[in-house]
Simulated assay, not measured.
Amino acid sequence: MVEHDALTATRDAYDAAAPLYAQLFHGELNDRPLDRAILSAFAELVRAGGDGQVADLGCGTGHITAHLEELGLAVFGIDASPEMIKQARHAYPGLRFEVGSMAAVNVADGELGGVLSRWSIIHTPPQELPAILAEFRRVLAPGGHLLIGFSASDGPSHPTQVFDHAVAPAYRWSPDHLAAMLRTFELAEVARMVREPQPTDRRQFQEVQLLARKA
């Protein structure tokens, strides 16, 4: 089955890269004030909405999960890669990390005040993304917030584009196209942040973070 093969290949690739990722991304936010700002806004909105639990889906080695905890959120991380979760548990033993899938989150309907999906959809084949977005909607409480980060395609005429990711096959998305997809799942865009590529960036694509609210 194609979907199974894609997931297996991505998981295996991140398992192999986990120790390197732990080194590369530790302290990543120190030089990213805009990312810190939108994460702070996300945390404030979740707290204002009732301070429900937050899931960091595709948490990798856990550094963003830990940052959200520092911002006062009751947060836990999920990743498909057992080795990534191993790195996260070692680095942040006081936090909860689980091996799992963002297509089938092990929480009840409407249980979460927030969902973070930071560059975790980029390895999802386009035909599988609607099921992921439906799961985001399912787990969010009414009024809950989603913050989703991804690399932008070259323009509105390119809803999705394949790009050469160092670890596994990946996809870029048109921000307008993805925002429209979110609306079909009653996830209304609240704000978006578009960061232009910098000379020191590994990939010269726009980075987009969409903030949405469940109706």
Rank of each mutant, 00 (worst) to 15 (best):
R36E: 12
L95A: 01
A166G: 05
L57K: 00
F163Q: 06
V105S: 09
H67F: 15
A80E: 04
I132A: 09
L187T: 07
S153I: 02
P93V: 14
E70Y: 05
V162S: 13
T124L: 08
A141W: 04
H123S: 11
P159C: 11
G113S: 09
H165C: 04
H67P: 02
L147Y: 07
D109W: 07
P125R: 09
W119V: 09
L24T: 12
I64N: 00
H123A: 05
D56H: 07
Q161P: 02
G60I: 03
L211Q: 10
F97D: 01
S101H: 04
E196C: 05
L57M: 07
F136N: 02
A141K: 15
H67Y: 15
G58S: 08
G49K: 01
A215W: 10
S101P: 02
A215S: 13
L112M: 14
P156K: 03
G114I: 02
D79R: 07
P93R: 10
I121W: 01
A131T: 13
S157W: 01
A152L: 13
A180H: 12
G114M: 03
D15M: 06
A13M: 10
V107Q: 03
G143W: 03
H165K: 08
L146S: 05
F42D: 00
T184I: 04
E98N: 07
R89E: 14
H165V: 06
I85L: 03
S157V: 09
R96F: 06
P156A: 13
A13K: 10
P169Q: 07
A191T: 08
R32P: 01
L178R: 03
A55G: 15
L147W: 06
Y171E: 00
G110A: 14
I132P: 00
P159W: 01
V107R: 04
A18K: 01
D201Y: 11
T65K: 00
P199F: 08
K86T: 14
E135K: 01
P33T: 13
A103E: 11
S157G: 08
S153F: 03
P19E: 10
T160Q: 07
P126Y: 04
K214M: 07
E128W: 12
A55E: 08
A134Y: 03
I122L: 14
D51L: 02
L57S: 02
P169S: 11
R36Y: 05
H4I: 12
A108H: 08
G72V: 01
L68D: 01
E128C: 07
A134T: 11
D12I: 06
F25R: 06
L140M: 10
F136K: 06
M181Q: 15
A180G: 14
P125W: 01
L20A: 15
L210P: 00
L133H: 05
A6L: 09
A152S: 15
K86P: 01
A88L: 10
V208T: 09
A6R: 12
G27D: 09
R118L: 13
T10C: 06
D154L: 11
G77K: 04
T10E: 08
A215Q: 12
I38Y: 14
D51M: 03
N106Y: 04
E196G: 08
Y171K: 00
Y92G: 01
V194I: 15
L7D: 12
G113E: 10
Q198A: 15
A131L: 12
